[in-house]
């Protein structure tokens, strides 16, 4: 049966398969790996020693980790059918605008809600671990989002399709072929709806997922604000951040 004028059930299944495969192949850590490391926590001593590091050192560490994770998101995007058919200008705009949001969704795989910790550099870390960054509000907002996304209990398929749909947002400024992006996003949302339906889920779950978008956007804006402030205080350190990080988050 046809789900819409130009998207059959077969299309939907093909899209789902492609997006899920791309997601699984480009996740930095498998769920099994993360599960195995669940009880690998930073000790209080280790946490204290990270808290005593300079803001510059801690920012550098986080910038390196975010940069590594972004490379996996680029690979995810490249494998989504239709993404590489867009002009390169639009591919770059979509990645620059959406990669942090994709990372925030992926983050809930690496979050342990039983002890409010997040996988960072080989072990699970509490919000206090990141104190040296001097951005308690940003860190707390990220942990809050992880907690609320975890509560949704997204399957890998739902996470994959949700990430792809966000990445392919047609409303990003300066897109030259936003209609083409919109068509891709519509198909991915249909696939997500279908997946939720098949999993016994409802429209309510999709609404709950979509309701996280403003929270995600505000985290992205807060990150940029903090980065700009950091750049004013420590221009040389900011200049030594990985070039890809500077490219993605530069003005």
């Amino acid at each position: 049966g046809a789900l819409s004028d130009d998207c059959s059930l077969l299309d939907i299944e093909r899209i789902t398969q492609n997006v899920v495969k791309s997601h699984i192949e480009t996740c930095q850590y498998s769920t099994e790996e993360l599960k195995r490391l669940t009880w690998n926590l930073y000790t209080p001593e280790e946490t204290r020693s990270f808290q005593l590091k300079s803001a510059e050192w801690m920012w550098q560490q986080c910038a390196v980790h975010i940069t590594n994770a972004i490379q996996y998101v680029v690979e995810f995007a490249k494998r989504i059918s239709g993404f590489m058919d867009l002009c390169q200008n639009d591919q770059i705009i979509l990645l620059k605008a959406g990669c942090l949001e994709v990372l925030l969704i992926r983050m809930c795989r690496a979050y342990n809600s039983t002890n409010n910790t997040l996988f960072f550099n080989g072990k699970f870390a509490s919000p206090q671990f990141f104190k040296a960054l001097g951005c308690d509000d940003l860190v707390n907002a990220i942990f809050e989002l992880a907690k609320s996304l975890c509560r949704l209990q997204l399957s890998e398929e739902e996470m994959a399709l949700f990430s792809a749909a966000i990445l392919l947002s047609p409303d990003r400024p300066w897109l030259t072929e936003s209609q083409q992006v919109q068509k891709l996003q519509e198909k991915i949302y249909l696939a997500l709806q279908h997946s939720l339906h098949m999993g016994g889920g409802s429209q309510e779950k999709l609404d709950k997922m979509a309701s996280k978008l403003p929270q995600m956007k505000s985290i992205c804006n807060l990150h940029i604000d903090k980065l700009e402030f950091f750049r004013l205080l420590h221009p040389e350190t900011a200049f030594s951040f990985p070039p890809l990080y500077r490219e993605v988050f530069g003005s």
């Binding site: 591919q91 770059i92 990645l95 620059k96 890809l244 490219e247």
Partner: peptide, 19 residues
């Protein structure tokens, strides 16, 4: 374009999956 040379390169590199 010049400002995004790493993204350009990453997008142009062939994925391992493509062989």
């Amino acid at each position: 374009t010049e400002r995004h040379k790493i993204l350009h390169r990453l997008l142009q590199d062939s994925s391992p999956a493509d062989g």
